[in-house]
Design a protein around this nucleic acid. Structure first.
Length: 430
RNA sequence: UCCUCGGUAGCUCAAUCGGCAGAGCGGGUGGCUGUUAACCACUAGGUUGUAGGUUCGAGUCCUACCCGAGGAGCCA
């Protein structure tokens, strides 16, 4: 008999199939029994009917507990009464393992309990929907860059020094040296961009910051493109195109999952080019008008991100930040050296910063000066300075946080649900 | 790191002024021909986060600690 997956069940109407999966829930009614089976691709209701109270299938059914694993065989029937529109008339059942009392019952649970059982929570409908969209999002991002001729070149996770020298890094041993977990692939991207023109890296990054908010993970995934000869304008266009492209893909292919999450799609449908683009200095008066206490030179905080999404109902690009709040490698604006050619993209609906990036310093002298000003160990950056000695060109790039983007697309309350196993402040189990 | 709130059955929660520790779900037993987080009846299940203190008496009040949640700063 053919082993089928539930997501393809419509193709097997009136045919006999074998399904392999787990018990999601069961209900019984005297001479009829209902079994909700999930197989990782979907869910279907199986039915057993008999006049005989002691029918072997009833006996097997009665043994089943939530999340027991089993193989069932039967005929696929279309039935409007069944969730999903199809059901399986079970003719044969093989129990693989009878699950012990399953902790996550089909009732409400609290966050601490669910987090403690994250390895099981992943089986729930909403968690599956979020992570299904995550998988599609990753694919959409790769497709976007691959289709534009970008080369995917991985950057190291173990690094000899800080990329930006600001945020706290995880330190580890590297034989007789110290090493740090990467917090960005950018500096290495700049090297590969000089070798390949257009590159991107896509991998995990680590921040040892003691952040405890719904927008922060200790370990998160980031895609970082870097383009030789690109300026701020070019890279802002790229950032817009990327976001428009991935949102469109999710709307097109993951409607079912967005429905499971009860995600209203109209804010996503509004994600079209061009985005609102403003200089930092231009947006300040609007922020202040709405109650922000920000002054020129302050970085955006949570209140500013909230206000931005109150003013605009789609993503916004902010450029030309004060130099002192940005990283050492940011290219200053020629007309106004206190400002740098950086761009941040803020999501709508209060989800905050999705993208941070901009144009990098390509002048050797200026970069050397910045390294000194930021008190960075010059010998660790020697290779990075080399990139400015041998055919230096203006170049730009950015980083997009995968989990933040996913949180926004799914409109979930907390970023911890946007990754299978979140690493949170002081929390590394399971 | 700071601020706020919380910890009672496997889970979600209740317990009046300090006065016998309870319900729903889940488990077990039985019932029901179409259930949709099924339903109905019965049943088992407790070191009230830990340590100390006040009191005739503490889940409740006080002190310290542990754990968790929400928020801030920093960032993607």
């Amino acid at each position: 008999m053919k082993w089928a997956y539930i997501e393809d069940i419509a193709d097997f109407k009136d045919q006999e199939v074998e399904l392999r999966g787990w018990v999601y829930n069961k209900r019984s009614g005297g001479k009829i029994r209902f079994l909700l089976i999930r197989d990782g691709t979907g869910m279907i209701q199986g039915t057993i009917y008999s006049e005989d109270k002691d029918h072997p299938l009833f006996q097997a059914f009665d043994q089943l507990t939530q999340e027991s694993s089993l193989i069932v065989r039967g005929v696929v029937k279309e039935d409007k009464r069944a969730p999903g529109g199809f059901e399986l008339g079970i003719t044969d059942m093989e129990i693989i393992q009878t699950a012990q009392e399953y902790p996550i019952t089909p009732k409400e649970h609290g966050i601490p309990f669910l987090m403690e059982h994250r390895h099981l929570w992943l089986r729930s409908q909403k968690q599956r929907a979020i992570l299904q969209i995550r998988a599609e999002l990753t694919k959409a991002i790769r497709d976007f860059f691959d289709n534009r001729g970008f080369r995917n070149l991985d950057t190291p996770i173990l690094t000899p020094s800080a990329c930006e020298g600001t945020t706290t890094l995880f330190e580890t041993e590297y034989f007789d040296q110290k090493a740090y977990l990467s917090q960005s692939g950018q500096l290495y991207n700049e090297a590969t961009a000089m070798a390949f023109g257009k590159v991107y890296c896509f991998g995990p990054t680590f921040r040892a910051e003691k952040s405890k908010t719904r927008k922060h993970l200790i370990e998160f995934w980031m895609v970082e493109p870097e383009v030789a000869f690109a300026n701020l304008q070019d890279i802002t266009d790229l950032a817009e195109d990327l976001i428009v492209s991935i949102v469109a893909r999710i709307l097109e292919t993951r409607k079912t999952e967005l429905d499971i999450l009860e995600r209203e799609t109209s804010p996503l449908e509004r994600v079209k080019k061009p985005f609102h683009r403003m200089k930092y200095g231009e947006i300040l008066p609007d922020l202040k008008k709405k109650g922000s206490k920000i002054d020129w030179g302050d970085d955006f905080g949570a209140p500013e991100e909230t206000i931005l999404s109150e003013i605009y109902d789609s993503p916004v690009c902010i450029t030309h930040f004060p130099a002192k709040i940005k990283a050492f490698y940011m290219q200053p604006d020629e007309e106004n050296p206190d400002e740098v050619l950086g761009v941040d993209v803020f999501a709508s609906e209060g989800y905050g910063e999705l993208i941070g990036g901009g144009q990098r310093i390509h002048d050797l002298g200026l970069l050397e000066k910045r390294v000194k000003e930021h008190k960075l160990p010059r010998d660790a950056y020697e290779w990075y300075l080399d990139l400015r000695k041998y055919g230096s060109v203006p170049h730009s790039g950015f980083g997009l946080g995968l989990e933040r983007t996913l949180s926004w697309i799914c409109k979930i309350k907390h970023i911890r649900e946007a990754i299978p196993f979140p690493r949170l402040l002081y929390k590394i189990y399971p």
